[in-house]
Amino acid sequence: MEKPVVILSEYNPQWEDQFEYEKKKILEAVGDKVVGIEHIGSTSIRGLKAKPIIDILAGVRDLNVVSSLIAPLSEVDFEYVPKPELTDRSFFRKGLWGKGTCHLHICEMNSSEWVEKLLFRDYLRKFPGAAEEYALLKSELSSLYKNDRPAYTKQKEPFIKEIIEKASRTF
């Protein structure tokens, strides 16, 4: 299987519309089993370069409900991707492997997974200097790890953790 490459795109205002479209489809498919849904990741930060993949965070009351969401989400083209290393969230992809258009992360509402992803997004939205620093890091890493998306993602972790710590003291 071919490795997914890292290609960053300039910010596209249509990403917000794409999120709203996907949010509507997801909520129609799963009803009230999802109690919160947010646009996260770089495509949710105005002006930030990003891999053109819409990251969606969906909150549920109990992670055990996820098995009952697999079939309805497949009806709206989200494929469940088992990732045993993820213990506090479940992952779904829309689009072909390595060429997905959306990633859906399902976790429990107000869990650390939920809170940290929103802290990171909100901090970058509020502090453009931090978003610029992240953009520079992403550009450097996309050059270094163009053909190794897992390494690209792993190398961003220290920066992300630092921003989450700052955000938890700020908000």
Score class of each variant (00 low, 15 high):
Glu108Ala: 03
Val81Ala: 09
Asp88Gln: 12
Gly98Asn: 04
Gly47Phe: 12
Val65Cys: 06
His105Tyr: 15
Phe92Ser: 01
Ser90Arg: 15
Gly100Gln: 15
Ile53Glu: 04
Ser68Tyr: 08
Asp62His: 13
Ser111Gln: 03
Phe91Tyr: 15
Phe92Arg: 04
Ile53Cys: 05
Gly98Phe: 01
Asp122Arg: 14
His103Cys: 06
Ile106Asn: 04
His103Met: 09
His105Pro: 02
Asp122Gly: 05
Ser90Lys: 15
Glu116Leu: 01
Arg93Lys: 14
Cys107Glu: 08
Ala71His: 12
Phe78Glu: 00
Tyr123Ile: 06
Ile56Arg: 01
Pro72Thr: 04
Leu118Tyr: 03
Arg93Gln: 09
Pro84Asp: 14
Glu85Met: 10
Leu124Thr: 06
Glu113Leu: 00
Ile70Phe: 02
Ser68Thr: 12
Ala71Thr: 12
Pro52Ser: 13
Leu104Asp: 02
Trp114Gly: 01
Asp55Lys: 08
Pro84Gln: 13
Leu124Val: 10
Tyr80Arg: 04
Trp97His: 11
Arg121Pro: 04
Pro72Ile: 09
Val60Arg: 07
Phe78Asp: 00
Arg121Gly: 00
Ser111Trp: 12
Glu75His: 05
Ala58Gln: 02
Leu124Ile: 10
Gly47Glu: 06
Glu108Ile: 07
Phe91Lys: 00
Leu96Pro: 05
Arg93Tyr: 09
Leu96Val: 06
Pro72Trp: 11
Leu48Cys: 07
Leu119Phe: 09
Leu73Glu: 05
Arg89Cys: 08
Asp62Arg: 11
Leu124Ser: 01
Val76Asp: 04
Arg61Ser: 02
Phe91Gly: 00
Arg89Gly: 00
Ser74Asn: 11
Asn64Leu: 02
Ser111Ala: 05
His105Leu: 13
Glu79Trp: 08
Val60Phe: 15
Gly47Thr: 11
Ser67His: 07
Arg121Val: 03
Tyr80Phe: 15
Ser68Glu: 15
Pro82Trp: 14
Ser112Asp: 12
Tyr80His: 13
Leu48Phe: 08
Lys51Arg: 10
Asp62Ala: 07
Asn64Asp: 13
Glu113Asp: 10
Gly95Arg: 10
Asp77Phe: 14
Arg61His: 10
Lys94Ala: 08
Val81Asn: 02
Arg46Phe: 10
Glu113Cys: 03
Gly47Met: 13
Pro52Met: 09
Cys102His: 15
Met109Arg: 14
Cys102Ser: 13
Gly100Val: 01
Trp97Cys: 00
Phe78Lys: 00
Ile53Tyr: 03
Cys107Ala: 14
Gly95Trp: 15
Lys49Ala: 02
Arg89His: 15
Pro72Cys: 08
Lys117Asn: 11
Thr87Trp: 09
Lys83Glu: 12
Glu85Ser: 10
Leu63Phe: 02
Lys94Arg: 15
His103Trp: 12
Ala50Gly: 04
Asn64Trp: 07
Arg61Gln: 08
Thr87Cys: 07
Val115Lys: 11
Ile70Trp: 03
Arg46Ile: 06
